[in-house]
Write a protein that binds this DNA or RNA. Structure first.
Lengths: 333, 333
DNA sequence: GTGAAAGCGCTAACAT
DNA sequence: ATGTTAGCGCTTTCAC
């Protein structure tokens, strides 16, 4: 690869001069500047980002830790970060940490070795304490989809509990009284919080959700099918189901219809996330919108600005899911 | 950040020795090795990947150029590359090149500046000639989803034309004779190739597809709806539609049913790609499988191995879409 | 088994 | 307006 020195030699100047024109620095004569530009083009010179990062002590890379690139939810998250990154001439370095503390740690470490000081982390498995320590040491870290009080000014999060409440209120307003819940079997906080919110709100209406009516499975389409089969097999009666996410909800609809139940005529279904799928499904899915794209953009902005002028108001860090009423829920008769 | 020198000072040795233990090099006494390991842990040392890349002249990064991270198709592509990358201890650097020659070029350049010699490129807009030149200069580049004869050993591609033929054969075998086609308005080769294959195969059965029966729109759900409306408005009769992709196909089904046509009873629909959506649409979508995950893994493998031992057989680089028969097509009566 | 020294490609302070 | 120099953090010969 062509280097600064090569260009310098060809131009008959020192490499410092070439560096100046590459960086649009001052103190270079217009003639020389022109000549060097020409040479750079001819010889196909590209600055070495590694060398640059080494000497300037800053990288033009923003790191992202997510469990999986293929999952539409995380893909959207990454895309949100990408959008604001390119505005700041930063590039995305994705490090996948498959839902285990060990691999999340590993993913962060790899990013740290790359010296990308700016990192947006989606971590569900690393313990609070460890994360707190990590964030104290790295001022440009931002945590997304998780709230830890001690570092709350670095957390961009969704109020899952409130989401559960909103779902409950919606179903109650449609006169449903026999409710069921399909939740995720993953050992993370989100399903618990959503369920808690749901149950609390039902309690206000004097409805208790007995444990027989709560089934769990993997948070996937297949998981939704399996969970629904379990629910059906249990013989419980229900007119509406609050489902952990859209993928499971669509699996649930599929199984329900295969068993002769019509959605929403016989059973109302409400999902969570509002992924693309929700709009494409038939019936179109009523769900709670998880504004992950917006949240990711927000997180990136905070990560890039922290330490700079702006002070961020905590209010902008907490997001509330919004009810998207479509076709999968209807009034109970 | 702690550096090699810091560790060296603390251990009372030269930084060369520390470097040796970090890299598991030979010629270090077991006592010293142990002591240094301890120090590394205590002081939280992480090697600087930039410095390393600079001196070794190789990066541990694999670059990916795709138009968009959020699109499920490209997310799956990226994920395929990620899978094999981590097996080789390489990390994903994603550079998004939004379907314009200029931004594709820019994306590649950014990767080049990072000195990631290994790059998998999805480019639809840069001209053949330019790509050929680029690939000659960079032996570790791999082109995905596009075939250029001059660099055919670097192309991992899908036979789109054959896909069109398979679709035609399927529809013909179901006795359909009045065919229509919904294609993409994007100025790339894929839609043309699919259409060409489709038309050629019909011609063998002495069926011509007049231009009135071919409508185009954006390759999205909404595009599918719009295209279908156009088709309906044209007053043409048809019993089956070959649709550019699954998203459009689902839009088409939606519009068809809204207009009182049942799928597949009145109209058969065949899509392309076999995205997750296809399995969960109602009716479940008959489609042509685009094995992008496999193709991406393949591409990554080739990119990482080229110049090494294995010589790749060209046969493994061409993929044929596979017919996935589901519920959206049926025999014409 | 360990150290000294050179150098990867670049930026930036200091000369001239 | 341009050159000289030092050094970022590391690997890697070559000496000892």
């Amino acid at each position: 690869m062509t280097t600064l020195k090569d260009i310098a030699k060809a131009a008959g100047v020192s490499h410092a001069t070439v560096s100046r024109v590459v960086n649009n620095g001052p103190k270079v004569g217009p003639v020389m500047r022109e000549k060097i530009h020409k040479l750079i083009k001819e010889m196909g010179y590209r600055p070495n980002a590694n060398a640059r990062a080494l000497v300037t002590q800053k990288s033009t890379t923003i790191g992202v830790v997510i469990p999986d690139v293929a999952d539409p939810f995380f893909a959207t998250l990454a895309n949100g970060i990408d959008k604001v990154s390119r505005q700041h001439n930063m590039q995305l370095l994705i490090s996948t940490g498959k839902l285990s503390a060990e691999s999340e740690r590993e993913a962060i470490n790899l990013l740290l070795e790359r010296r990308c000081e700016t990192i947006v982390i989606h971590s569900k498995k690393i313990a609070d304490d460890e994360l707190i320590e990590l964030f104290k040491a790295n001022p440009h870290f931002v945590l997304i989809d998780r709230y830890i009080a001690e570092i709350k000014d670095k957390c961009v999060w969704l109020d899952n509990k409130e989401g559960g409440k909103i779902a409950a209120r919606h179903l109650l307003s449609l006169k449903h009284r026999q409710l069921a819940c399909i939740t995720s079997s993953y050992e993370i906080e989100d399903p618990k919080l959503r369920l808690t919110g749901f149950v609390e709100e039902l309690a206000k209406a004097n409805i208790t959700l007995d444990s027989q009516r709560v089934v769990s499975a993997e948070p996937t389409l297949q998981g939704g099918e399996i969970a629904t089969q379990k629910l059906l097999a249990s013989g419980q009666a229900f007119s509406a189901i609050f489902v952990y996410n859209d993928a499971m909800a669509i699996g649930a609809i599929s199984t329900l219809e295969d068993n002769g139940y019509s959605v929403p005529n016989d059973v109302s279904i409400i999902g969570f996330d509002d992924v693309l799928l929700a709009r494409y499904s038939r019936p179109k899915l009523t769900t709670l919108q998880y504004p992950i794209d917006l949240m990711a953009q927000n997180a990136a902005q905070i990560a890039l600005h922290i330490g700079h002028e702006q002070s961020i108001s905590i209010d902008t860090l907490k997001f509330i899911p919004q009810l998207i009423k479509r076709e999968s829920t209807s009034t109970y008769f």
